[in-house]
Computed example of a mutant assay.
Amino acid sequence: MQNAKHLSQKGLTVWRIYGLIQTLVLLLLAVGVGAFNYFFFETTWIYVVAVTILILLGVAIIGIIPNVRWKRWRYEVREHEIEYQHGLFVIKRTIIPMVRVQHVDSEQGPILRNYHLASIHISTAATQHTIPFLNEQEAEAMRMRISELARVAEDDV
């Protein structure tokens, strides 16, 4: 991918927020298991194990994984295809021919809206592809460009 682009730097912050939410859910589960253990088994070593695991998972989910994901995400929109790749151990590289594109949507939830980001969803007959965390203006321009290129590619066939 010669002219590949990265996702927005703000995407790192959004991934960290998602990680924080996941960690809080895990914390609630750990508190529930701890309360169950305290009332029925009265052992304290399980608290130490649960807190240690939760701290390690929190550091990974909030601190490490978003950086790795951001560094590995690349995308490129060319005249005849869209290409993107991501992954650490298993690198997934996808090429979507423009003639296969049926429609393109942009999506923006409350967290993305707060950071002025949007995700692009590209639909073909059989699959759905997503390019996350693009700046709002870039996402809208990309959506329009892909729609235009797909229309031109369809006319050529």
Rank of each mutant, 00 (worst) to 15 (best):
M1R: 03
M1H: 05
N3Q: 14
N3I: 06
N3A: 11
N3W: 00
A4Y: 12
A4T: 12
K5V: 08
H6C: 06
S8T: 02
K10Y: 01
G11D: 03
G11A: 10
V14G: 01
V14F: 04
W15G: 00
R16S: 11
R16Q: 15
R16I: 10
I17Q: 08
I17W: 01
G19L: 14
G19Y: 09
G19C: 03
L20G: 04
I21Y: 01
I21T: 07
I21M: 09
T23E: 11
L24D: 01
V25C: 12
L27W: 11
G32M: 15
V33C: 10
G34P: 11
G34N: 14
A35I: 15
A35W: 15
N37M: 14
N37D: 14
N37E: 15
F39C: 00
F40Y: 15
E42S: 12
E42T: 13
T43F: 08
T43A: 10
W45T: 14
I46W: 13
I46F: 15
Y47I: 09
V48F: 13
A50P: 09
I53H: 00
I53V: 15
I55A: 13
I55Q: 02
L57H: 02
L57K: 04
V59G: 03
V59N: 01
I61K: 11
I61R: 12
I64W: 04
P66N: 01
P66Y: 06
V68N: 07
V68R: 09
W70E: 06
W70G: 00
R72H: 07
R72I: 02
W73N: 07
R74P: 10
R74H: 12
Y75W: 13
E79K: 10
E79P: 04
I82C: 04
E83C: 00
E83D: 06
H86E: 08
G87R: 04
L88S: 02
L88T: 11
F89P: 01
F89S: 01
I95Q: 13
I95P: 00
M98V: 12
M98K: 05
M98T: 08
V101C: 06
Q102C: 05
H103K: 02
H103N: 08
D105Q: 12
D105T: 07
E107W: 12
Q108Y: 02
G109F: 10
R113Y: 05
R113I: 07
R113P: 04
Y115Q: 06
H116N: 12
H116S: 12
L117Y: 03
L117K: 01
A118L: 05
S119D: 15
S119W: 07
I120K: 05
I120W: 07
H121G: 00
I122G: 08
T124Q: 05
A125H: 04
A126H: 04
A126I: 11
A126L: 13
Q128S: 11
H129F: 07
T130C: 08
T130Q: 10
I131L: 12
P132F: 02
F133H: 07
F133P: 00
L134E: 00
L134G: 02
L134N: 03
N135T: 05
Q137R: 14
E138L: 10
E138G: 00
E138P: 02
A139C: 05
E140V: 14
E140T: 14
A141F: 08
A141R: 06
M142S: 06
M144R: 14
R145Y: 04
I146D: 05
I146P: 03
S147V: 05
E148C: 02
A150N: 06
V152R: 12
A153W: 11
V157H: 10
